[in-house]
């Protein structure tokens, strides 16, 4: 599976919303062949993005204290 194209404005919710639109369009059977191929490609891209987003919050819970996080950031900046 190809990697999702980096889209800074894309969010999980926007990706899921677009995916639903694409499926509805494909299900309608109204899309022409060229559009169908483009939609399939876009859907694949969105699925990869959503999969990666879910994977990021499916591993192990990370707990940080605000103070230690701030201290870490400050030391990194220094």
């Amino acid at each position: 599976m190809s990697e999702a194209a980096p889209t800074p404005d894309r969010t999980y919710e926007s990706a899921v919303g677009r995916l639903e639109e694409i499926i509805a369009r494909l299900d309608s059977g109204e899309a022409e062949l060229r559009e169908t191929l483009a939609l399939c490609g876009e859907a694949k891209d969105l699925i990869v993005f959503c999969r990666d987003e879910l994977a990021e919050v499916s591993g192990a819970l990370t707990e940080l204290g605000l103070d230690e996080l701030v201290a870490g950031l400050e030391s990194r900046e220094a």
Partner: peptide, 19 residues
């Protein structure tokens, strides 16, 4: 995660059926 799998399947099936 499971819904995404279903969505992927639906998109694939819809596209394949269309073609």
């Amino acid at each position: 995660r499971s819904e995404l799998g279903v969505a992927a399947m639906r998109a694939q099936r819809a596209g394949a059926a269309s073609i």
